[in-house]
């Protein structure tokens, strides 16, 4: 069982949405996945979802879930949603994660925060999320990506575009229907995460 965590102090950059999208995409590609909630929001029902939702809102719950999953030989993935503005919780989650993803959006605050966090988590990957699809806006925002790539070469993932229908994943009542653009988004993201997990596994073997 592998653990991927979506972390970062900045709120509203897509930690939760991308964690759900990853869990959905992994499940669609045949990899059992669970979304783990760690902040104090209401636990969503996993009815109609292809992935499990696990309650990790306290340290004992989180520890029990991870310990239990590790006891089973499985190719499954825990996708942990770190929640915003909790540095010590991010440290804890990063310490047990195989892959750490730091989503960030195309704005000054978000890029400043992710820049600091990339230094704090040397093995983390920065994921540009909710990125503009308009070519002029992309040209303007390319500066953010160039800055991060210059500071942390090779640790910047391809940007993910804005897909409004992804918001369906965080509705209290999810009806199970995922629109084609969101399906595509989930598949692409899941493949990306699966590749990162594979390369991490290969790195372990080589070490």
């Amino acid at each position: 069982m592998k653990i991927v965590s979506f972390l970062g102090k900045k709120g509203g950059v897509g930690k939760t949405t991308n964690a759900h999208a990853t869990a959905h995409g992994l499940s669609m590609t045949g990899i059992p996945a669970a979304y783990v909630l760690t902040d104090q929001r209401d636990l969503l029902s996993d009815e109609n979802r292809v992935y499990t939702i696990i309650d990790g809102r306290t340290v004992p719950q989180l520890e029990r879930a991870i310990a239990s999953a590790r006891q089973r030989e499985s190719n499954g993935v825990f996708v942990i949603d770190g929640g915003g503005n909790r540095g010590v919780v991010d440290d804890l989650l990063a310490s047990v994660s195989n892959v750490v993803i730091l989503p960030f959006a195309a704005d000054d605050d978000s890029v400043t925060v992710v820049n600091e966090e990339m230094a704090h988590f040397p093995a983390a990957w920065a994921l540009p999320t909710n990125w503009p699809t308009n070519s002029k806006a992309q040209t303007v925002d390319a500066g953010y990506l160039e800055k991060l790539e210059a500071n942390y070469p090779g640790r910047l993932l391809p940007f993910s575009p804005t897909v409004h229908s992804l918001r369906d994943f965080v509705l209290a009542q999810f009806n199970g229907s995922v629109l084609p653009p969101a399906q595509r988004y989930c598949r692409v993201l899941a493949r990306l995460i699966a590749d990162l997990l594979d390369s991490e596994r290969a790195g372990d073997k080589a070490a």
Binding site: A65, A67, R86, D91, L92, S95
Partner: peptide, 24 residues
Amino acid sequence: ASKTGGSLKSVFEPAKAEAADAVM
């Protein structure tokens, strides 16, 4: 609420777990 069970064994470093517990 949770679909997990099993015995509790130490997963986290105690100092980090304690700091996170206070926040969570």
